[in-house]
């Protein structure tokens, strides 16, 4: 591959003080007048010279965009291309729960009628996120001494984490977390299906009901999206899932959970009407890209 492909977050780099952030701040471009974001695709040298950038690229333009970037790169001297070494200070999240439960989430809305007008601009149906639980939290997803047939209620604060920070309408744009008072119900019950040779098979059933119908909007610790948000919103869903816990390794080796219910409101581009929304949670792989922080990690209030 003639490039080093990288993905990063606008807010982090625009506000960061490390060398990579400072480099980005020099090249960050507001591609569209009036748009308050430097979102886009950039081609740059490791020394920090911007070669080309676009807000969006169509399939037809991509080859030309890449060739143009390579051409410009090759015309530079080695010194211009590489510059001085900088310290890679943002290698991975220090809060990643190494021995905990790391879940990859996919949210999908099932529009019966696609939104029209402004609400229909760039409509997509799905988005993704990650949900993290520390080792001690993960171990609370099952009874401490599981026996076949046992039922066990997962502590509500662990389920509320999903309701407040992950089961929001982020399909089209950012959404604020739900304040704690807005979670009306967050129940997840584990049933032990089998215990054999230290391997515990579990089934999960539950319900989630979050509802906010008040003002002012819930403030974000660091507001990365500036879209206006409507506080009137709700999500009411049933949960079902299956998991396998290895008692020797003290960790989940399989974990799946599905939430399916009706969602309404939440953002400028969210429907005021009820729209079915599904969330599928799956055990994440231990790869750099599946170590991306949960979007609302700061609200976990981890030490």
């Amino acid at each position: 591959m003639p490039f080093i492909p990288a993905a990063d977050e606008v807010g982090d780099l625009e506000s960061g003080r490390d060398a990579a952030s400072r480099l980005y701040q020099k090249i960050a471009t507001r591609h569209i007048r009036g748009l308050r974001t430097s979102q886009g695709t950039y081609i740059l040298t490791p020394s920090g010279i911007l070669l080309s950038s676009r807000h969006s690229i169509s399939e037809d333009e991509l080859a030309e965009f890449l060739a143009d970037g390579i051409g410009k790169y090759q015309r530079l001297s080695t010194r211009e291309r590489l510059g001085r070494a900088i310290r890679a200070s943002r290698t991975s999240s220090s809060r990643y729960p190494e021995d905990g439960l790391v879940l990859s989430l996919v949210l999908r809305k099932f529009y019966s009628r696609k939104p029209v007008g402004r609400a229909g601009i760039g409509v997509v149906e799905s988005n993704r996120d990650f949900a993290w639980y520390k080792k001690k939290e993960a171990e609370q997803f099952l009874p401490s001494t599981p026996k076949k047939g046992d039922t066990y209620n997962v502590p509500s604060y662990l389920v509320e984490r999903l309701a407040r920070y992950h089961f929001t309408d982020t399909v089209r744009a950012f959404a604020d977390p739900y304040p704690a008072r807005c979670v009306k119900k967050a129940r997840l019950t584990a049933t032990v299906l089998e215990v054999q040779n230290g391997v515990v098979k579990l089934r999960y059933d539950g319900t989630i009901h979050s509802e906010q119908d008040d003002t002012p909007r819930f403030g974000l610790a660091r507001s990365r999206g500036r879209l206006p948000r409507r506080p009137q919103r709700s999500f009411q869903a049933n949960l079902l899932g299956y998991a396998t816990f290895d008692q020797a390794k003290k960790r989940f080796t399989e974990f799946e959970l599905v939430a399916l219910g009706n969602h309404r409101g939440g953002g400028e581009r969210s429907s005021k009407d009820l729209v079915p929304m599904g969330v599928a949670l799956t055990l994440a792989e231990d790869t750099p890209l599946e170590r991306v922080e949960p979007f609302h990690l700061e609200w976990y209030l981890w030490n």
Binding site: I4, A6, A7, D8, S38, T41, I43, L44, T45
Partner: peptide, 27 residues
């Protein structure tokens, strides 16, 4: 995709390659 720009800069220097950077609000 490398998960952040810092990693890509280090690798780009080492391999003498340009960086294709995808930036979004939210990773």
């Amino acid at each position: 995709w490398r998960p952040n720009l810092a990693v890509a800069i280090a690798e780009g220097r080492e391999m003498d390659k340009p960086i294709l950077l995808w930036m979004m609000n939210g990773h």
